[in-house]
């Protein structure tokens, strides 16, 4: 994973995460609790970076193992607003995970208004190595939020049904 170790616990202050090598990162992800399912949250200096981090949180909900960026898939989506675009984006990844039997560990997102184009990279699921803990069914509008704070940090979050 790109930011392994950065996001398992909620940082006290979004936007500045200390990496394992001691350097500072301006982006990260975390999970947040939901009754039966799981919340994913990504943040970064741009909307696209926050979406990339939310996608990493989605993958981390499934596996704690490394995911190799071996094969490339292109994804596009479009929605009525930024929040629904996040739901669409995560659902597009869930769909590709399901039909290709893949996990994805690297995401390059471009957002233009309410249109998103991305290149996602990953590998076939290896049950022995990845030990998938759950199967995401769909991203929901519960706890759905896409916003920029006063410091300019973008956050993208919602609950995923697992």
């Amino acid at each position: 994973m790109q930011l392994q170790g950065a996001g398992r616990e909620a940082p006290r202050r979004l936007g500045y995460v200390t990496m394992p090598d001691g350097t500072a990162s301006d982006r990260g992800w975390r999970h947040f609790a939901h009754g039966a399912d799981l919340g994913v949250c990504g943040w970064g200096p741009t909307l696209a970076a926050a979406f990339e981090q939310a996608a990493l949180a989605l993958t981390a909900a499934v596996t704690a193992a490394q995911v190799a960026a071996r094969d490339k898939v292109e994804v596009t989506c479009e929605a009525a607003d930024r929040e629904l675009l996040l739901v669409d984006w995560l659902n597009a990844i869930i769909y590709e995970m399901a039909v290709r039997r893949m996990l994805f560990g690297r995401f390059e997102v471009r957002i233009d208004g309410c249109r998103l184009a991305a290149v996602i990279r990953g590998e076939k699921i290896d049950p022995q190595r990845h030990q998938p803990a759950c199967e995401p069914k769909g991203a929901t509008c519960t706890e759905l939020q896409v916003a920029q704070d006063a410091r300019g940090v973008w956050t993208a979050r919602c609950v995923v049904d697992v």
């Binding site: 009525a80 629904l84 659902n91 769909y95 399901a98 069914k137 769909g138 509008c141 049904d161």
Partner: peptide
């Protein structure tokens, strides 16, 4: 899972068009 995803998306504008005020999308 995909039918749920497809129709949740479709029902949001359908609710708005029917004048249904949703407290939660």
């Amino acid at each position: 899972h995909q039918i749920g995803t497809d129709y949740l998306k479709e029902m949001l504008p359908a609710a708005a068009a029917a004048g249904i005020i949703l407290p939660d999308r």
